[in-house]
Design a protein around this nucleic acid. Structure first.
Lengths: 166, 166
DNA sequence: AAAGTCTGATACGTGTTGTGTCAAGGCATG
DNA sequence: CATGCCTTGACACAACACGTATCAGACTTT
C-alpha cells in the first residue's frame, strides 16, 4: 500500500545525503546525552559551532506533543520525520522536529489525511519551497518578477490551508 | 472528519459560480438524453456551439472505468467530481469527468491517499495551475521570466508524481 | 410498460491508524 | 553495578474509512 517517497526536486543537487530517512538511521559520530533530556541550553564554554537550541528525548517529546511515543516511532519508520540520534542511538527531537509533528497532526486530524496523504503533502510543501527558491534565484536581476513570483507563491501556500509556519 | 473544501485561489474572480459542487446539483435548462448513452457524436444539424464530444450515463461510465456506480455517486457527493445532468437529472459523464475519476483512482490506489487526501491533492493541482497562469500573465512583458517560471512550475508538477495529463 | 436512474439509508468486509504491550538488549547515571 | 529509560521488532485491538452492495419509492427515457 505504501509507496516509496516521491522524487524530490532537489535531487539533482545533493545526492549523497540521507534521502529523507527511509534508510535505517546510522550512529552519529559525536553526540552524547547529558545536556539534553530537558531543553539543553548551550554550555558556557561552547564555541557556538554546534548550536543546539533545544533537544528532547522521545519521552519528553511525546509529553510536549501529548502523543504516544510509539506514534513518533511509527512516523519515523514511515519517513515522515527524521530526528537526530545520540551515539547510543537515542532519538533527539529538535524544535523543528516538534513543529513537523504538529504539522503532521494538523494534516491528519484537521484535514483528515491518512499518512500516505501526509507524506504527499509534506513532499508537496518541500517541492514548492524548493521551486520558489529556484525561481527566485533565476530571476535575480528582475526584481519586479521576483516580487510577482513571491506574492503568487505565498498565495499558493495559503491556499493549501496550512496553519501558519513551514 | 471531513472539512469544507479549501479556499480556492481563483475565488476573488468568479464568485457566482458552482463553487466546485458541494451544493446539490440543479436541473439544467436544456439537455436530454437520446444522443448520449454511447459516445454521442454531434448531430449533423448541430451548429457546433455546444460541442459535446462524448457523454455517458452512469452505468456506461462505470463500465468504462470498471467501477461501481455507487462509488461514482459517492465521489460526487464528496465534491470530487461534478458530472453534468440531463433535464431529468441523469448524470452525464464527459471525457474530462472520466479522466478525473482515473486521476482519483490513481491517487487512491497507487499513492494510497484516502479521499480527504485526494480532495487536498486535487485542490493543490487546481491552485498550482491557477497560480502558474497568474504568474504568466503578470510577467507578460518579460519573456525570460515567463520561461523560467514555466520550466520550474512544470518541474513542480512532475515532482508530484502525476501520471501524465491534468 | 419496461428498463434504467434518481435519492437516501443501511450494511458489510477489509484495511488503516493510534495506541498498547511484550521481550531481549543497550546506554546513562548515580 | 543497579536502576531506569531507551532501543528494535513483533503482535494486538478498537475505531474508523472505503468500496461495494442492497433496498425502497419515485422519476426518466425509450
Amino acid at each position: 500500500m505504501y509507496q516509496r517517497p516521491r522524487p524530490n526536486v532537489e535531487d539533482e543537487a545533493e545526492d549523497k545525503e540521507q534521502r529523507e530517512s527511509q534508510a535505517p538511521p546510522t550512529r552519529p559520530e559525536n553526540t552524547n546525552l547529558s545536556s539534553a533530556k530537558t531543553a539543553a541550553k548551550p554550555a558556557p564554554g561552547d564555541q557556538g559551532v554546534i548550536e543546539v537550541q533545544g533537544v528532547y528525548i522521545i519521552s519528553v517529546a511525546a509529553r510536549i506533543l501529548d502523543m504516544h511515543p510509539q506514534t513518533l516511532r511509527k512516523y519515523e519508520k514511515l519517513g515522515l520525520i527524521n530526528p537526530g540520534r545520540t551515539i547510543g542511538m537515542l532519538r533527539l527531537y529538535s524544535i523543528e522536529d516538534i513543529k513537523k509533528v504538529q504539522l503532521i497532526r494538523y494534516l491528519s486530524d484537521e484535514l483528515g489525511l491518512n499518512l500516505a496523504g501526509v507524506e504527499f503533502a509534506l513532499a508537496a510543501f518541500d517541492n514548492m519551497t524548493a521551486i520558489k527558491q529556484r525561481m527566485d534565484s533565476r530571476l535575480e536581476g528582475i526584481p519586479a518578477a521576483q516580487q510577482a513570483v513571491h506574492e503568487e507563491m505565498d498565495l499558493l501556500f495559503e491556499s493549501l490551508n496550512l496553519p501558519h509556519d513551514h
